[in-house]
Design a protein around this nucleic acid. Sequence first.
DNA 1: CTGTCATTCACCTATTTGGTTGATTGATTG
DNA 2: CAATCAATCAACCAAATAGGTGAATGACAG
Lengths: 113, 113
Amino acid sequence: MVEQESQHRLTDIFKAAGDPTRRSILTLLAQQGPLRVTDIAAHFDMSLNSVSKHIKVLEGAGLVTRRTEWREHLIELRVEELAHVDRWFRDLRSIWALRLEALDTLLTQETDT
Amino acid sequence: MVEQESQHRLTDIFKAAGDPTRRSILTLLAQQGPLRVTDIAAHFDMSLNSVSKHIKVLEGAGLVTRRTEWREHLIELRVEELAHVDRWFRDLRSIWALRLEALDTLLTQETDT
DNA sequence: CTGTCATTCACCTATTTGGTTGATTGATTG
DNA sequence: CAATCAATCAACCAAATAGGTGAATGACAG
């Protein structure tokens, strides 16, 4: 159950990061701090509308939050959320390492006998 | 140019990792080591054909390689390639950290004067 | 040579995605 | 109030994606 939820989150994050425009937006936010939708859109050769959609995808993945102050929406990067990816990566690596280790001890035993 | 190429690669990797079935395949390979297409397919409630396609996507992203021995195709995980993802997120984080640091020193100077 | 196994290829379908334009909401300014 | 600005919503389109079935390829076993 919890596993399912975590998997779903991870899928959203990877999908969001799978688009070059969206990765550029994330980089831009990391460099410049919170920005308005219009300011972000100014960096791309694309309609404001499309950029707005991209931002919503990032928001859905939790990679970004929106602080609606006045009539402007301030978009902000959420670095913490990246920890999900870190964890997945680390888990996969440890599974891999465990297998190699087991294989190694098996081979050692073989040469011992 | 080189930047473009790297971006394209990254997009492929993220897209490949953005599917739960494909992530499961990666985990499976990490646990069990190289496997045949049929063996992999046995773990999923899905046609062999679909699994074959998923594997080709992973292969295209470089996350997996194929060793065609006899009539069987041995599919093997390439953990090194996965590090691209990790590195990108790490870079993003460091850009973020640099900005905060700069902001901090700026504020400190202000209170000093 | 025939049959079988492992895998891919070719084709079909439904859904998702990335982009567009035009209308709409809501707040600000003159 | 009228005009403008920030952003979203709605409808639409083309291309890509995830899945399925059935035929084709290529190597091995009898």
